Amino acid sequence: MELKVTLYEVDGPVATITLDRPERLNAWTGRMHTEYRWCLAQADADPAVRVIVVTGAGRGFCAGADARALEGHVEKGGYDPGTPPDIPRPGFGVHPEFDHDFAYHFGLAKPTIAAINGPAAGVGLVLACFCDIRFAAAGAKLTTAHGKLGLPAEYGLSWLLPRLIGLAPAMELLLSSRIFLAEEAERLGLFHRVLPRDDLLPSVYEYARTLARTVAPSSLRETRRQVYIDLHRGVGPAVSEAQRLLDELTAGPDFREGVAALLEKREPRFWSPPPAN
């Protein structure tokens, strides 16, 4: 696919997807959604990639739906996602609940980390919330945005946000559509860390490479799937599935390497950087 509004780069075990409309604060369009899903599919299928980082070009993460697209919805008298019928489907086929817009993140085999470098509004905040872990630049402005446009909470955020930060604070942010800062989001538990802007990406990449280097890829894959599937079922099935996976993974090479590293008092070699030229 020819990428026009996103960038896709792979460096060792980390793939980076950059929303790339900096002149519009990376406002979301159907083209961007299509390209974003294609990039996710590439990263998920690449055996060399262990972690996926999502960020924005310039001074914003994603300012929400593009104003011109919103104007188009008014003219058409309804919502038009602007995506083709053959849009890529990363994460589909793992669990029926995940076969929907943005919920497809839950079906990926690899963790996603949002590096929120600036404003995230509406669908931009949705995208950040559907990532597994979130880092943000100090002072980044955030808003659910939908209320002031006369819209419902978007793309399942009404289901996800209460599970991330609790019902009461999520309800307040969803009902008010007010602007809040990264520092408040960190206090609410939405962000893992808030950092000076210049430190954001270096810290995210350090964290991503540590995950890739020290945690077995099979464990990353199955743990995140356990978490998201278990959100839809009771504790009994969760325990049974954990036992099934325990039996499966103890027969695999990652477990053997992890035990060997423990006994030899060294870091496990789940991934090694390519040799220098």
Rank of each mutant, 00 (worst) to 15 (best):
182 A>I: 08
130 F>V: 13
201 L>V: 09
194 V>R: 04
216 A>T: 03
199 D>I: 05
120 A>H: 05
127 L>E: 09
175 L>D: 05
136 A>F: 10
172 E>H: 11
133 I>N: 05
115 A>I: 00
196 P>S: 12
225 R>G: 02
172 E>C: 04
217 P>T: 11
226 Q>W: 12
181 L>K: 08
187 R>T: 10
164 L>E: 09
145 A>V: 06
199 D>F: 07
190 L>Y: 06
212 A>R: 01
116 I>K: 00
184 E>Q: 13
193 R>F: 03
134 R>D: 04
171 M>I: 03
217 P>E: 08
122 G>R: 01
208 A>E: 09
150 G>E: 09
171 M>E: 13
146 H>T: 03
130 F>H: 14
137 A>D: 03
125 L>D: 00
115 A>G: 07
167 L>A: 15
170 A>K: 01
116 I>E: 05
187 R>A: 11
155 Y>Q: 11
141 K>Q: 13
223 T>N: 12
220 L>N: 01
175 L>P: 00
187 R>W: 06
133 I>E: 15
169 P>A: 11
188 L>W: 08
196 P>G: 07
220 L>P: 00
124 G>P: 11
167 L>E: 15
116 I>C: 12
187 R>I: 02
186 E>P: 00
156 G>T: 08
225 R>A: 07
177 S>A: 15
204 V>M: 07
195 L>E: 09
214 T>D: 15
197 R>W: 08
153 A>H: 02
133 I>V: 15
166 G>L: 10
161 L>C: 00
221 R>N: 13
156 G>C: 09
226 Q>M: 14
132 D>R: 13
218 S>K: 09
154 E>Y: 03
118 G>P: 04
129 C>S: 14
138 A>V: 11
136 A>G: 15
140 A>I: 09
126 V>F: 06
131 C>L: 10
221 R>V: 07
147 G>T: 08
174 L>A: 00
134 R>G: 06
121 A>R: 10
181 L>W: 10
218 S>W: 07
158 S>F: 00
148 K>G: 11
206 E>L: 14
165 I>L: 10
132 D>L: 10
156 G>M: 10
170 A>F: 04
128 A>N: 11
180 F>Q: 05
128 A>V: 08
127 L>Q: 13
134 R>P: 03
209 R>E: 13
189 G>V: 04
183 E>S: 06
165 I>Q: 05
132 D>H: 15
124 G>W: 01
216 A>K: 04
119 P>W: 00
154 E>V: 02
170 A>L: 07
208 A>F: 08
137 A>G: 14
164 L>K: 15
131 C>G: 06
149 L>K: 12
